[in-house]
Design a protein around this nucleic acid. Structure first.
Ligand SMILES: [Zn+2]
Ligand SMILES: [Zn+2]
Ligand SMILES: [Zn+2]
Ligand SMILES: [Zn+2]
Lengths: 138, 138
DNA sequence: ATACGATCTCTAGTGGCTAGAGGTTCAAGA
DNA sequence: TCTTGAACCTCTAGCCACTAGAGATCGTAT
């Protein structure tokens, strides 16, 4: 049995975030001391670690709720879990694609100006003012 | 002189967003009709296009404010503008890097399970429960 | 017994919008 | 000129996933 501070240290999830997860219904409300302080056990630690890991991988709270629901029913088909992971992968890939386009434009802009001129002649500002200077859609 | 709806159509910025930008002080308050409706001119269109383009490239509102400030003073050094663009590029690259790591882990997870089993044996769920299965930090 | 860090609840703020309620104005057609 | 209906107005609240702070209480070590 350990305190919320201890749980926070072990999982590297901030205390207010732990309480927030509890309020959301993502993390079960733990036991309390007579003085109303939260006391966690190994199960709580495990669950919060799961949540943390999934959040770090970019899964939404809703997705994590669904994953936890599955975890709580070991005999159910895991099809939904793989679907969620596949969706997350698509999401990440879409984000990468978009960011790579942005990267190219930003490189072009940065190359276009040394920063030793005056704002009126700045290629960065001109580029932002005129999308036609861009090489790609974004 | 055109209405907010027209401005919205031309810039593809939604009407509430335009009003939000005005409230933020990002976009100057335009003239009004006697009936209190906003009427924009070419300058307003140009400025909103600038903002839209910068937002599409991922610049924060604060960064855009600084860029606009520079644009309004054509004789100032553009050093700050290039610094902001360079910072944005670093930001984008950091995001790409992180997402590429996530992508690898998600691919590994997805490969690990066909979705035809039971949640108890699911590699996706096992992977989320145990970061030690991950190939990289993230 | 006392001190002091940790915890409690509650509210409000972050960024960048987005949605809705309830009321007013504009512009085109009859 | 009148009427209709789309577009506009302001204001408040909601979204996601937290984060920060106020002010009060608790737990533990000396
Ligand atoms: Zn420049
Ligand atoms: Zn562009
Ligand atoms: Zn599976
Ligand atoms: Zn991991």
């Amino acid at each position: 049995m350990f305190s919320i501070g201890e749980l926070s240290k072990r999982t590297k999830v901030k205390i207010p975030t732990i309480r927030y997860y509890e309020g959301m219904g993502l993390l079960a409300a733990p036991e309390r001391t007579t003085g109303n302080q939260r006391r966690y056990d190994a199960a709580g630690l495990e669950r919060l670690s799961f949540i943390k890991h999934a959040r770090d991988l970019g899964f939404s709270i809703d997705a994590i709720s669904a994953l936890i629901e599955l975890q709580d029913h070991p005999d159910r088909s895991c099809q939904a879990a793989t679907a969620i992971a596949a969706g997350q992968l698509l999401d990440v890939r879409a984000k990468i694609k978009r960011l790579r386009t942005l990267e190219k434009e930003l490189v072009r802009m940065s190359k276009g100006c040394d920063g030793d001129g005056v704002s009126q002649d700045c290629y960065v500002l001109a580029s932002l003012a005129d999308h036609d200077l861009c090489a790609h859609e974004h």
